[in-house]
Design a protein around this nucleic acid. Structure first.
Lengths: 154, 154
DNA sequence: CCTTGACCTAAACCTTACTTGAGGTTTTAT
DNA sequence: ATAAAACCTCAAGTAAGGTTTAGGTCAAGG
């Protein structure tokens, strides 16, 4: 299984990337179709990846665990430098952006939790007045902008 | 618009419920098909709801905002008393259950956030070793059981 | 040479949570 | 009585995030 040539120029095949990144080959195809990762092609039309793709996939997976949709991840990744390999500062910018979103999300969930007991038990679950029904009453007031993933499913 | 008879026996039509609960009529059909709510029928085969359905829908919506999938909500709702109208204690039990899940989720997100800076920037984003890649390393250790919605999208 | 495993593309299928549309019936205001 | 607003059922469509399948190509070991 997985008989591979001795890694000629540092380029990885799709199978190797899948194995090392812990995702299915089909997932890599899918990500590529969505513009999340890139590949070159061998003479025989097979995908060849630069090693950096492993970090890209890792970041995609981490971001997904934060609840960020692929489209938003794609957008964020597109802000990475084009020619060169992203450096620590580049990644830092991404993580800072997501950290802010995450902080917001956490604050929202905490507010929700603190209302849960009172609200589900009581008679206030009205569309207009209850904090559990009205996200914005509790979640807003942290200023607008950067609603990357407040599109939960409302 | 919305010309309704004078509410003969406290039963609500689907349109009334939709308007008051703030959801689409089609959503009520859908919830009913999934066993999340119930209805009686008029002579002419139209849906008639007891007023309690408003609270049910409110609770469903609140639970969804917590990230709980409909199937789990249906299961939780099925634990409500059959004959009588649920009382405050019944709802309390539901909210307690969800609060625990929510606490877990919040803790997980906080752990994630606290690793974000360090991990995305550094070289550690490996499948095997990085806390950002390995949910269970950080998220577990709070004991097993009740993983109602830790099925995020992993 | 030739088999086998890895790879290719395109299209279909899956789940969740609904919405939309088609074609027909019921209610109700006038 | 009648027209319009609401309602009904069932089927199909949407979007996200992939997976599966079908049919064919590439590459390396024996």
């Amino acid at each position: 299984m997985m008989r591979m040539k001795k890694n000629p120029v540092q380029l990885l095949s799709v199978g190797e990337v899948a194995a090392r990144a812990g995702v299915a080959v089909s997932t890599l195809h899918f990500y590529e179709s969505k513009g999340l990762i890139e590949s070159m092609r061998s003479e025989g039309n097979q995908r060849r990846y630069a090693r950096g793709v492993l970090r890209h996939v890792a970041v995609i997976k981490a971001a997904q665990r934060l609840g960020i949709p692929l489209a938003a991840i794609a957008e964020a990744l597109s802000s990475l430098p084009d020619g060169r390999t992203p450096n620590a500062a580049d990644w830092k910018r991404l993580s800072a952006r997501w950290k802010a979103e995450l902080d917001e999300r956490i604050a929202g969930l905490i507010a929700l939790r603190d209302h849960l007991d009172g609200c589900i038990g009581c008679g206030c679950l009205s569309v207009a007045a209850c904090p559990l029904r009205n996200p914005d009453d509790i979640l807003a007031k942290q200023g607008p902008g950067a609603h990357l993933f407040r599109r939960d499913r409302a």
